[in-house]
Design a protein around this nucleic acid. Structure first.
Lengths: 120, 120, 120, 120
DNA sequence: GTGGTCTAGACCACT
DNA sequence: GTGGTCTAGACCACC
């Protein structure tokens, strides 16, 4: 590794969540592969210029989501099996998009009209 | 009126902003029509079970955005002209959708694949 | 409330986890009832003599497990529906007991012999 | 030998203690018999993929508990007399089970109800 | 007042 | 060196 984690300190979504999202995305995209080791908490923290606790919280959440696996004293690794993770993430995104499209349709747009604007 | 304002207390977006979004949406969709009166701050507050200050803040923002108009002793009304509101809201939603689609494409889906899944 | 939370500072199970277990048990036993408010993070922290962050972590986990529900600026409450939580907890305990009994049987004890000793 | 030593890197109980527990159990169950030789520290370490120091610590503890015996240039062996080991281990397990059953009873289950579920 | 986030830094056990 | 826990305390938004 390591791919860049991009943080927006102004955003309302907290830093730890941005880290989570970044890593989830890299896993989904395939930049981070199964069993691959990711930077230690301290490394990641210093490279991002944030406190180790913040990274720890992100890693905790990712572990909870089974995206990563941490082995104490050895380090942190992408999970053995990440396919389901990717699939879940895609499904969730599609659902959100569908919701938004339904809102637009309530406002009077047709599905084709919407798709046309999306394609541009 | 009044159409249901749905609040999510777990959400990161503050209550006052959720109220703003709800009302903006109802205007965009046409459920709330131009010049129509909306509930007083106190009424709205008690019907939602929130603090009047919270509703006040929402109404202030809506007034600032020219979505509603307060007439001193008479009450609060939807603005005379709401077309621009709708347009802005639509543009914003389309942008969000495009963002999400770009993320999905990074994960390896093609634009047509995505659209197919959306249509279902 | 509030029922006593008993902490063992010597134990290998961390404080935050002990808090989680205590509250889960009180919910399972029915001492803490659905929708009941529990002490604020700061209150709980000072009454236990621990840091608010530690309590926060416990509450986060409980929220994740859907045992409690927190509404920002209002407080923290036992979930609307706790029956399934109790059931899950019981099932888990039964499984652990079964495992241990199987180990004992491997060591040459019969199931009846074990049960006899348990009853005492 | 050697029987499988199963390690859980996620567990809170340290690796060396898991090794101790595993071997104690195999002795109690009779898979490892009195005077039988067990692998050297280095062998065990490499077969488990852990640091030799970790195995050393486990062996030290086992020797202290008189479960095994190290004879300088010859190797490491299960003790001459292992009966007490088995008895102690059984007593400990029974106590743990009793504790868990008491918790279940606090949750409103009767002792017979619990035993019925265990038997299944 | 409430919860939410973050920092700085300590100490621990394990390897 | 690694992760795990905890403290002390700050600042924020919201109500």
């Amino acid at each position: 590794m390591s791919p860049l984690i991009s943080l927006d300190y102004q955003s309302r979504t907290p830093i730890y969540e941005q880290i989570v999202n970044n890593i989830e995305k890299y896993v989904a995209v395939g930049i981070l592969k199964e069993k691959e080791q990711i930077p230690s908490i301290r490394e990641m923290a210093s490279s991002l210029g944030v406190n180790p606790n913040t990274v720890k919280k992100a890693y905790d959440i990712l572990e909870n989501k089974k995206v990563i696996q941490t082995i104490s004293t050895k380090g942190t690794f992408i999970s053995d099996d990440t396919k389901h993770t990717t699939k879940i993430k895609i499904d969730r995104e599609i659902e959100i998009i569908k919701d938004k499209i339904q809102e637009l349709m309530k406002m009077g747009m047709s599905i084709d009209e919407i798709i046309e604007r999306i394609r541009k």
